[in-house]
Write a protein that binds this DNA or RNA. Structure first.
Length: 114
DNA sequence: CCGATGACTCTGC
DNA sequence: CGCAGAGCCATCG
């Protein structure tokens, strides 16, 4: 059952659930914070297997460029875009703006988040 | 065991 | 600003 791997999923979900409202985090960021330095891809899979019962704010997880991690036009894409707007953020052409401007700074946040 | 795929990221052109 | 290539890790055939 690869329980060690399940633990990682738990951490990922926990990190995602710990994302402040009105803020967006990149996959690599979540992965790093979950203890997975290079497992950004696994984060995507984790969200994919994440049950809705957890009420996981997966919509706060976007790509490093601040773009939606799902194909434009997909159901998840629209959902994420809409939820982000509901969070007070602004979605432009698939891009997410942090409450007015860019709030996330990729590698910079890592030092900040420490 | 090897090859292909993927809710990723970075660098170069 | 957009496209292409390379790197990274886990899962599936």
């Amino acid at each position: 059952m690869t329980e060690s791997h399940e633990q990682h999923l738990r951490q990922i979900w926990q990190v995602v659930a710990a994302i402040p409202r009105g803020t967006t985090m990149s996959y690599g960021q979540v992965a790093a914070r979950a203890g997975l330095p290079r497992r950004a891809r696994m984060v995507g899979r984790a969200l994919g297997v994440a049950p809705d019962e957890l009420g996981l704010p997966w919509h706060r997880v976007v790509r490093a460029d601040g773009r939606i991690g799902l194909p434009a036009g997909s159901a998840g894409y629209r959902s994420q875009c809409r939820k982000l707007k509901a969070e007070g953020l602004d979605v432009r052409d698939g891009r997410v703006a942090g409450g007015g401007t860019s709030d996330r700074a990729t590698s910079l946040d890592e030092t900040l988040w420490s």
